[in-house]
Write a protein that binds this DNA or RNA. Structure first.
Lengths: 340, 340
DNA sequence: CTGTTAGCGCATTCAA
DNA sequence: TTGAATGCGCTAACAG
């Protein structure tokens, strides 16, 4: 195990008594005589030589890095997506660079500037909010960008999104089948992409089924967190008495469950609860929570693949993909038929 | 908003009618005449010039990137640590590169080789297992490495670890105070760093308090996940009847709670449960779970700062820091004194 | 098959 | 203050 100092092509070449070009060839598996290969290998081993990534990047014009920026690192659904993206891009030989983006939209344009510095070959972005003007900025980027989530209309960018309307509809249909009729809604902030989409889904779902839309039956947490969910849930239960609630994500759902049970409501008997994103916490909750899988993992995987494809072929046509949701039914929404 | 193509120092210099050195100076805020500054600024703006990160890195010998490798990305405790590390290094002007490391020890040496390619300036590593031979490899690294977690004795590396013995002791003391005496233990794999440390803590804690050590009261899940926890919990409750259980992490704790309540045990009345890591899931659980905070966030922050310091001063003395645990008491372990 | 050479884009020496 | 020239470590085009 050698190498305490950094060694370079030149050093290896000297030690092996060959040209640096030969060293480079051997290291890259290009044709060379057995004798040279042997000598270079030996010298490289002895010096513990490893090619320098930065120099290679400068020469090649690619960093073999992909940047990932997600809005809320705390939310389990993003963790799962990150994990999946990491898997896919790593397998393709890329490193993943985490670019934390706060809720401040200004962060996003900072990120784009930063990206133009060329520290990565492409970007996967899952923004919570997309101001109109951001669209143009994104489109003008020199480097490929894939967006997870909805885009302002007309923006031509590779994109993969969830079908929130269909997702909420799955939840509502299920609840109706279970005999529920007073279906409330705990949302996140409506000025976010998912918040707006899911509210839209809730309204259409109830309307389509002829259920009454009651303002008292809708609350918005100030963000998509457990803590904000507690307050929102309290507010909801203060102002109406639903027999079922659809929550915009699983964190809000467990918050609601906590508040509801603290008030003596039994889940699902008195109150059925359905979450969204189908993260681990839905499964881990007690009782386990029915949740709409909006395809977060699939979206993540698809986004990664879209970016990889575009890196290979910058001219490929723009793709905008919608992932269909599925429903995982668990105890929190299933009315017990008969029991001890 | 210009720039569709990449622009370089040379292009800016041509457009501004100055030398590339002057452009470089202006971009870096070095002394220059107002006139030149003005012309360069204008040209740079018009071209949408941004300095290239790769070229700068090659020249400077530093990438401004820090690599982070954690064992299990799924575990919430690592998510929290990652988040904290991201915060600290970003504030210091570094980007965070995620290097997924599987459980395969071979991944770790691959990582070290990869690190020697110089894609990052330093590494924060939180390994689940540290084979003897890895110690030397780590010490021999050309680039600074900070280890989160225990190290083989004698390895001189910046390191920050938890005091697991004290941590488990906190849990046991608390349970004894609550009047529990048959205190069982759900551990993760004992061939991991945390698994071994926490088992050690359990044994010493019970011994120190004169409580009997019963083999039936100890199980090891095959890893630190909820799923593995379900099986381990079932095994435990099959083979003994504890009145309290310490779990090696919060995932194992909620798994135990699920199994216990499914068997008709009431938490905490029949069974007190204490988890470890004090992650969100402990707080979100119903009832909320008492948990030992092994200082994961502090460890993360400390590790990041240690690395930043070493990057500034490679000659600084090696530091090995131990973070003291604290206990957060919640409903899962508190015996109700009187109640309706 | 192998060696020499020219940049990739930048920061920085050294002269002027 | 400013410009010309050098080299970070590597790959690739070109010669031999």
């Amino acid at each position: 195990m050698p190498q305490t100092k950094k060694s370079t092509l030149v050093l290896v070449a000297e030690r092996a008594g060959v040209s640096i070009a030969s060293v480079s060839r051997v290291m890259n598996g290009l044709p060379a005589s057995d004798q040279i290969i042997e000598r270079v290998r030996k010298a490289a081993d002895e010096l513990g030589y490893v090619p320098d990534a930065t120099a290679r990047s400068l020469k090649a014009g690619r960093t073999e890095q992909i940047a990932l920026a997600v809005a809320d690192v705390g939310n389990p659904v993003y963790v799962g997506m990150m994990h999946e993206i990491s898997r896919v891009v790593t397998k393709a030989g890329y490193r993943l660079v985490l670019s934390s983006t706060g809720s401040d939209p200004r962060d996003q344009i900072d990120l784009l500037t930063s990206l133009n510095r060329g520290f990565a070959d492409g970007l996967i972005l899952s923004p919570l909010r997309v101001p109109e003007e951001l669209g143009a900025q994104l489109e003008a980027s020199r480097l490929p960008i894939v967006i997870i989530g909805s885009l302002p209309p007309g923006v031509e960018l590779d994109n993969v999104r969830a079908d929130s309307v269909a997702g909420v509809a799955l939840a509502v249909d299920h609840l109706v089948e279970q005999g529920r009729s007073r279906i409330a809604f705990v949302n996140g902030p409506v000025d976010t992409v998912p918040g707006a989409a899911r509210l839209n889904g809730y309204v259409s779902a109830l309307t389509a089924r002829g259920l009454p839309l009651n303002q008292d039956a809708q609350v918005s947490a100030k963000d998509f967190t457990y803590k904000a969910g507690l307050k929102a849930a309290a507010r909801l239960l203060d102002q109406c008495t639903p027999d079922a609630v659809v929550c915009s994500n699983d964190l809000l759902a467990i918050a609601l469950m906590k508040v509801a049970t603290a008030r003596g409501l039994r889940v699902p008997d008195d109150l059925a609860i359905v979450g969204m994103d189908d993260t681990d916490i839905a499964d881990h909750a007690n009782p386990a929570i029915t949740s709409v899988d909006l395809g977060s993992v699939t979206r993540a995987k698809t986004a990664a693949k879209l970016l990889l494809r575009r890196l290979e072929d910058p001219q490929a046509p723009v793709e905008q993909i919608v992932i269909e949701p599925t429903l995982t039914v668990r105890a929190s929404s299933v009315t017990r038929t008969t029991e001890g």
